[in-house]
């Protein structure tokens, strides 16, 4: 009886004071995310130099954003980069995780070493890798800034180097959660190691695959720092009319460059691009989550 009264009084106090605990988080979320997000959407319908002086212009910015050849080019370039990096990162991260969950000497050391690149910021990473690439490429009389293909693979290598370790940690957690009795049963039933991998292990780590694919897909689309530092969009193809195709420029960098173009409409146009970009990344991410979650098995 006394216990029940005490529990009731705690519950009622929680009900009365929950806002005190929830409030700061909600306030921070509104101030730091919801309000800027809504204002960002509003600004995508405006011409502005500074946000306090915005003038509503309707959907003009969206028209300009969608018809901008640089935006279109960087969309397809970003999609290609994101898909290629997604596949390579996840295959390699899973492979490394799989090997490091076997009983090999120094596994913990390897895990730490593989994870460490993730602790370095994108800009620093981009500049360091540009020096490494150019150190090698100068022997062949070229540079990562001179060849689109080299720029593309340079970006992929940097993304892989940075993200494989992070994804590996998630895969290791998933692999360690695969029930030992299932693996033992498979072994007793005479399954080969490949059969065990594809029929038992992978279906059981689908939750990890879901999250890793989601992270690498969205990271690929959002990539900015490494792109800015490694190639800055170079090489450019100079068109006969003087316009340029910035052959290694991804979406986020295109938005940034558009924002700081000197025309009156550029900031609103960049804001419209950012909203389209958000819808795209959110839509792709959610679609992928829905697709891979269907393939998760209940243990």
């Amino acid at each position: 009886m006394a216990k029940s009264l005490k529990a009731n009084s705690i519950r009622s106090a929680t009900r009365r004071w929950f806002w005190l605990f929830l409030g700061p988080v909600v306030a921070a979320f509104i101030i730091g995310f919801v309000w800027p997000f809504i204002q960002g959407i509003y600004l995508s319908f405006c011409n502005f130099r500074i946000t306090a002086d915005a003038e509503f212009v309707g959907i003009d910015n969206y028209g300009r954003a969608l018809s901008d050849p640089a935006f279109q080019y960087s969309f397809w370039y970003t999609a290609l980069t994101a898909i290629v990096s997604l596949v390579i990162i996840n295959v390699l991260a899973f492979t490394v995780a799989y090997l490091l969950t076997k009983k090999i000497r120094g596994a913990n050391l390897f895990r730490t070493v593989f994870f460490m690149p993730n602790l370095i910021g994108g800009i620093v990473l981009g500049y360091i890798w540009s020096m490494i690439f150019d150190g090698i490429l100068s022997a062949y009389n070229t540079s990562i800034l001179l060849d689109t293909t080299l720029g593309f693979w340079g970006l992929i290598i940097v993304m892989c180097w940075q993200q494989i370790g992070y994804m590996m940690i998630i895969y290791i957690a998933g692999l360690q959660a695969v029930p030992a009795d299932m693996l033992e049963a498979a072994e007793i039933d005479g399954a080969t190691s490949m059969q065990t991998l594809f029929k038992v292990t992978i279906p059981n780590v689908m939750p990890s695959i879901t999250i890793c694919v989601f992270l690498s897909l969205t990271n690929g689309f959002k990539l900015f720092d490494q792109n800015l530092a490694l190639t800055g969009g170079q090489p450019y193809i100079i068109q006969p009319d003087g316009s340029t195709i910035n052959t290694t420029q991804m979406l986020a960098l295109t938005i940034y460059n558009t924002f700081y173009t000197s025309s009156t409409a550029s900031r609103g146009t960049a804001q419209a691009m950012a909203v389209i970009f958000f819808v795209l990344v959110a839509g792709l991410g959610l679609a992928q989550l829905a697709y891979t979650r269907k393939r998760e098995v209940q243990q």
Binding site: L145, G232, Q234, P235, Y236, I238, N257, T261, S262
Partner: peptide, 11 residues
């Protein structure tokens, strides 16, 4: 449009 113009010259 100085920044974009110069970037193309650099490239």
């Amino acid at each position: 449009n100085v920044d974009e113009y110069r970037k193309a010259l650099v490239s």
